[in-house]
Simulated assay, not measured.
Amino acid sequence: MTTTTAPPPVTPGRLGTQTIPLPTGPEAPSHARRAAVAFLHRIWPSLDPGRRDDVLLIVSELVTNAVRYAPGPSTLTLTTAAGTLDIAVTDCSCAPPAPRAPDLTDGTGGMGLHIAEDLGARVFTEPLADGKCVHAAFNDA
């Protein structure tokens, strides 16, 4: 996957990481968004509100994909370091996400990875022995 738009500069105020275990049901995306708001408020309080909303949308989309396509637990890890913000969602499915044409009529999705890229994230999948980790990374370089 490639980013088609240039991301705005990302300059977090402090270095930090937080891993949040997520519930397995439909409440996982809202739980993840609340955790992300707290993390960003603590680590990066000067983040533009519009950009914060972009981050929360990407968190929701990645976590929703994990809940929908991976049976079992997932985690959200947020990391800021040296001008980067990495949103990482780990789940127990080894199948990598497959971008597909968005379904605008039946409501079956297909927009999450496209949304992340359109908002300036570099999306990539890290295979793990017991699943995968999907990253959406922002870099100011």
Rank of each mutant, 00 (worst) to 15 (best):
V37P: 01
T84S: 15
P7N: 03
P97L: 13
A98K: 13
Q18D: 10
A70D: 04
P12W: 06
G16K: 08
G109Y: 08
G25K: 01
I87M: 11
P29I: 05
T3M: 01
G110K: 09
P99E: 06
P26W: 03
R33Q: 11
D54N: 15
G83K: 03
R42I: 13
Q18S: 09
A38I: 12
S93L: 09
L47T: 03
V10R: 03
L85Y: 13
P29G: 00
I43R: 14
L22E: 05
C92T: 14
A35K: 04
T19W: 05
T4I: 01
D130P: 02
T19C: 04
P21L: 04
P73N: 08
L113V: 14
P23R: 02
T90I: 10
L113C: 10
L15D: 05
C92W: 06
F124L: 12
L128W: 07
E27N: 02
P102V: 06
S93H: 02
W44E: 04
A141P: 06
F124I: 00
F39P: 05
D53I: 01
G72C: 00
A32S: 07
P23G: 00
T75E: 15
V89Q: 10
T17A: 07
V134I: 15
P9T: 01
V10N: 01
G25C: 00
V59Y: 07
R14M: 06
E61F: 06
M1G: 10
C92F: 09
R33E: 07
K132I: 11
P73F: 08
T17D: 06
S30H: 03
E117N: 13
P45N: 04
I20M: 01
E126F: 07
A137R: 15
R33I: 15
M1L: 02
P21D: 09
T79N: 09
Q18I: 02
G120R: 15
I115E: 04
A101H: 14
P9Q: 01
D103E: 09
A81E: 12
S60L: 02
E126A: 10
D54V: 00
